[in-house]
């Protein structure tokens, strides 16, 4: 028996998820309804009535409603450039009108456009069960919880993103995001996340540490260090060797953009 459920409250949505094991939350549907999706369920829990679309920029914290579509995010006047750019990596406006931020995170896509930037912004996710966990934890633990809001401290650091597509509508070879904070020229905080290097979006924490402790400087050494660190596989998007190289230069390109912006 298949069911299409439309809860009116968050609590009800969470309760329904428990009541129907294996059920799936339905946001915009661009992932869940796609024939290319692996997700299969006979019970959908529509999030529409929860109206999780509010985007707010406070003094320190930005809150993004999980049901905000990529296009709504791009059209939001206060959307930071890096987030706007990352949303634009989804090149089809048709799909951007449908795909939601929460859906993009919860789908655990290996080539997610949104996760790298959220991960380097140290974004937290407010979940339907009242938990607040980091986007990194959500990904690492392959959580399926209902995402209510995404929030991050917008006063910390400067971010840049870059995506490499095979063609404008084609597969993403990789997506990278970097967030840096400076005291003078010294990097005091570094966050680097990349997709396309494996089944999950990953943070390059060892590189981040060396950037902060100064043992690694941006430039050719960083490119090589990144290339040496990641471990992609060869597939139709390119050889592992190519991806390693490209990951290095793409991360460095993001850093260069930040350095230029703060200079």
């Amino acid at each position: 028996m298949s069911r299409f459920l439309k809860p009116l409250t968050i609590d009800e949505a969470v309760a329904l998820k428990k009541e129907y094991p294996g059920s799936l939350y339905l946001g915009g549907g661009s992932e869940l309804n796609s024939p290319l999706s692996d997700a299969v369920s006979d019970t959908y829990i529509s999030l529409e009535a929860l109206n999780l679309k509010a985007c707010v920029r406070g003094n320190h914290t930005t809150i993004l409603g999980a049901s905000t579509t990529f296009q709504e995010l791009m059209d939001w006047d206060e959307c930071p450039d890096a987030l706007k750019e990352a949303a634009g990596f989804l090149t089809s406006r048709n799909v951007r009108n449908q795909a939601t931020l929460g859906g993009n995170i919860a789908a655990h896509l290996p080539d997610s456009y949104m996760l790298p930037i959220l991960m380097v912004l140290d974004a937290d996710l407010e979940l339907g069960n009242d938990e607040v966990i980091s986007a990194v934890q959500y990904v690492q633990e392959h959580r399926q919880n209902l995402i209510i809001n995404i929030r991050y401290d917008h006063t910390r650091g400067k971010a840049a993103v870059k995506n490499v597509l095979r063609s404008s509508g084609g597969l993403s070879v990789l997506s990278a995001a970097v967030c840096l904070d400076f005291e003078g020229e010294k990097i005091t905080k570094a966050a680097i996340a990349v997709s396309g290097m494996g089944p999950k979006v990953i943070r390059l924490t060892s590189i981040e540490k060396t950037l902060v402790d100064g043992s690694l400087k941006p430039g050719a050494d960083l490119e090589k260090a990144v290339a040496d660190l990641v471990d992609p596989v060869s597939d139709l998007k390119g050889s592992a060797e190519y991806k390693k190289y490209l990951c290095g230069v793409t991360v460095q390109d993001c850093i260069s953009r930040i350095q230029e912006a703060v200079a």
């Binding site: 299409f4 549907g29 661009s30 309804n33 796609s34 959908y44 296009q71 089809s92 406006r93 048709n94 799909v95 009108n97 449908q98 509508g169």
Partner: peptide
């Protein structure tokens, strides 16, 4: 949801009908 041959205006916005139920 790739080709857009199934585009409709859904509440005035272009989306692909094939990605909706």
């Amino acid at each position: 949801g790739f080709t857009g041959s199934d585009a409709i205006l859904f509440d005035g916005k272009v989306v692909n009908a094939g990605l909706l139920i």
